[in-house]
């Protein structure tokens, strides 16, 4: 495990990637709002944002892959949330809690491998744990107990599928391409860090 302290470069990379994903988050918000509008008259508006939920975990998994130090996923999510709050996110301080929980979700499988394995299997597990933890949190926030269990089950299934696609598959694909381009300062085969 790379136990070196986070450097200014690491923090800058996390913050810059958070802004890049901020644009994607905004697109997801527009798409989610449009879908919510269509589904609201049928009582299914709560499902509107679910197909895009995995996008919110992407920044954390990408920076964890790029920096490979403990707590990077959590810090990235918190930085992204702080940036969203500063730009006027409508859920304000609540986003910080959501971000922390999502970051923990992304981080757990990598932490269990001591930040040494970055395979598709670990990325998929990361997507799964992020979906489960975020589901528990939004369940408390939105009081899922007051809803029909079939709606709650649908929320979970759509969120899981979204997470597996955006976080487990797409993020890992982008990271592998970055690795192929030779811009990472880690050698995947030997685990060596090139400073």
């Amino acid at each position: 495990m790379n136990r070196n302290k986070l450097t200014l470069r690491d923090y800058l990379l996390m913050a810059l990637i958070s802004v890049v994903f901020g644009v994607l988050y905004l697109m997801a918000v527009y798409a989610g709002t449009a879908l919510t509008t269509i589904l609201t008259p049928f009582g299914l508006g709560v499902l509107g944002y679910e197909p895009f939920f995995g996008i919110w975990f992407m920044a954390a998994i990408i920076t964890t892959y790029l920096i490979r130090k403990p707590a990077v996923g959590i810090i990235t999510e918190v930085i992204a949330a702080l940036i969203e709050v500063m730009l006027g996110n409508m859920f304000g301080v609540m986003v910080l809690v959501s971000a922390f929980i999502q970051g923990v979700g992304v981080e757990i499988p990598f932490a269990l491998t001591k930040y040494e394995k970055y395979s598709y299997k670990i990325a998929m597990l990361s997507a799964l744990s992020a979906a489960v933890l975020s589901f528990l949190w939004t369940g408390f926030r939105s009081n899922y107990l007051a809803m029909d269990w079939r709606i709650v089950a649908t929320i979970f299934v759509i969120r899981l599928l979204s997470s597996l696609f955006f976080t487990g598959y797409l993020s890992k694909r982008i990271c592998d391409k970055l690795d192929e381009a030779g811009i990472l300062n880690h050698n995947l085969e030997t685990g060596e860090i090139i400073e």
Binding site: V29, T33, T36, F42, G43, G45, M90, M147
Partner: peptide
């Protein structure tokens, strides 16, 4: 605008698909 829309969507879900009713 989006806040009202999201709140409305939760209102309709809670109304049409409440747990007790299910």
């Amino acid at each position: 605008v989006p806040i009202t829309l999201i709140s409305l969507s939760y209102f309709f879900t809670g109304w049409i698909f409440s747990s007790e009713q299910a």
